[in-house]
């Protein structure tokens, strides 16, 4: 195993699980325009996941393609951060997750775009533009909900409080990776703090910091997500779709 492989796999898993969760909103969004927007973001994440997992498979050199990696690994072999696997909750929780994920992915993909690994650099250059749009979208909703009605404010603050602890894992050291996530925290804070302030939301105190996703120790939720995602593929071993 090596740094670029581990990073491609971890980021590919982040994007894949985020796409799977976002796609759960299809036909359920609060308004039709939002159904379209969430599907768009899910498609961006899925697109990035496919590029990253395909590349991870090539780096591994064991003949695994994107589908072998997505459908034939168990939860203990997934390397995504815990944030993306958390259930969608209400729309406020989904927007809090997306705000923090995109505020992490934007500087991450930007840094990747300048790294020495050409394939990762190309993926980063493409994905960072999409992340910028995801961040705009989530920031706008954080402001609307935080500074909307009393109920939406209460829900958005509760969502931020619920999701915040999962942010810390994103910036843990990643040995051997072409980008050091610890260097991204400042950019994250510089993005998120003003959004929370404008949304009249309190930034939660740091404290509990659950982690383990990058080592394959997940929440109880991931196994259910994978059970659903993988069921058909696994029921027909070797079939072409």
């Amino acid at each position: 195993m090596n740094g670029p492989f581990d990073l491609a796999l971890a980021l590919g898993d982040d994007a894949l699980i985020a796409a799977q969760r976002l796609a759960e909103w299809t036909t359920r969004a609060p308004e039709m325009e939002e159904d379209v927007a969430l599907a768009n973001i899910a498609l961006d994440q899925l697109g990035a996941a496919r590029l990253l997992l395909t590349y991870a498979g090539e780096l591994e050199g064991a003949g695994r393609d994107e589908d072998a990696l997505a459908y034939l690994r168990d939860d203990r072999e997934f390397r995504n951060c815990l944030l993306v696997e958390l259930p969608n909750g209400d729309f406020a929780v989904t927007m809090a997750k997306l705000l923090f994920l995109s505020a992490y992915q934007l500087p991450l993909y930007t840094a990747l775009a300048g790294c020495a690994d050409e394939r990762l650099a190309a993926i980063g250059a493409k994905a960072r533009k999409e992340s910028a749009y995801h961040l705009d979208h989530a920031s706008l909703w954080a402001r609307r909900l935080g500074d909307g009605t009393a109920e939406s404010h209460r829900r958005m603050q509760a969502a931020v409080d619920q999701v915040w602890p999962y942010v810390h894992e994103l910036f843990a050291p990643f040995p051997g990776a072409p980008v050091d996530p610890t260097t991204l925290r400042a950019a994250f804070d510089a993005t998120v703090d003003p959004v929370l302030a404008e949304a009249t939301l309190a930034r939660p105190a740091d404290g509990w910091a659950p982690a383990g996703g990058r080592d394959g120790r997940h929440t109880e939720h991931l196994s259910y997500l994978l059970a659903e995602m993988q069921v058909l593929h696994r029921a027909h071993p070797g079939a072409i779709w």
Binding site: L16, A19, Q20, A23, E24, T26, T27, M32, E33, D35, V36, A39, N40, A42, L43, L46, G47, A49, R50, L53, E66, D67, A70, Y71, E228, M229, V231, L232, H233, H236, A239, W241
Partner: peptide, 28 residues
């Protein structure tokens, strides 16, 4: 939409998600 979460390959998942999204667009 019932099959997006269980689509049997990532390519099929992307195509189906885009299709269902198109339908929302047609509705609009």
């Amino acid at each position: 939409g019932n099959w997006i979460s269980r689509a049997p390959s990532l390519k099929r998942k992307a195509i189906l998600l885009a299709k269902v999204q198109d339908e929302a667009g047609h509705g609009l």
